[in-house]
Computed example of a mutant assay.
Amino acid sequence: MNVKPYIDYSKENYWVSLDDSYGKEVYKRQYKINSGFIYGGISFIIDGENRTSILSTDDLHSTWLDLVRYYLNDTFNYKEKWIIFIGHTDNQLINHEDKDHPQVQLKYCESHTEWIPVSVMKQAILDGFLTFMPIIEHDVIEDLYDEDGNPFEFPTELKELLSTYDSFVKQNGS
């Protein structure tokens, strides 16, 4: 998965990455302005191929939390539709009816992906999550004061994401 962690509207190409110092500064500012909620976008890259346009979300942490919950779900029920929060609408991961070859399709906005094996989709989610989380600087997310110096509560979604990430790292000994 390819993650564009937040939006910087001051740039013509407003999707920026956290990989450089400018991106990290914008992230810090967005975090403070929005009391811990980060705008951003995700595109699904599977086998080196982009399967979606950038899906814009007004809460990147909630989107990641929904994707990680899908990843952690062990059951396959072909009748199940998994709701993924992306932006202002609920998008769905829909399971294919073939129980012997579990596949999933992401329906978003007015579009959808082709059918993708569940194992491939889950691996893409895990790879994206493990790439995204180490980029977040912990001193930034532990600073619970907005740009005016007023305190705000640590977003629940981010707490759960950090806990999940820590357990993944502990399991894999990284």
Rank of each mutant, 00 (worst) to 15 (best):
G48S: 08
G48Q: 01
G48W: 00
N50W: 04
R51I: 02
T52G: 03
T52R: 02
I54C: 06
L55Y: 12
S56A: 07
S56F: 03
T57P: 06
D59V: 10
L60Q: 06
H61F: 14
H61D: 14
S62G: 08
W64V: 06
L67V: 10
L72N: 12
L72Q: 08
D74H: 08
T75Q: 15
F76C: 05
N77T: 13
K79I: 11
K79V: 06
E80A: 12
K81E: 13
K81D: 05
W82P: 00
I84V: 03
F85A: 07
G87Q: 11
G87M: 00
H88E: 09
N91L: 09
Q92A: 13
Q92F: 11
L93A: 05
L93M: 10
I94N: 02
E97D: 11
D100E: 13
H101K: 15
P102V: 13
Q105Y: 10
Q105A: 07
E110S: 00
E110V: 01
H112Q: 15
W115P: 04
I116L: 00
I116K: 00
M121S: 04
K122W: 00
K122G: 09
Q123W: 00
A124G: 04
A124Q: 00
G128F: 11
L130D: 15
F132M: 08
I136E: 11
E137I: 14
H138F: 00
H138P: 05
H138K: 03
D139A: 03
D139H: 10
V140P: 01
E142M: 03
D143L: 05
D143F: 13
E147M: 05
D148T: 06
D148W: 10
F152N: 15
F152A: 15
E153A: 14
P155T: 10
T156H: 04
E157I: 06
E157Q: 13
K159D: 10
E160M: 13
L162M: 15
S163W: 07
T164K: 03
Y165E: 01
D166E: 11
D166R: 08
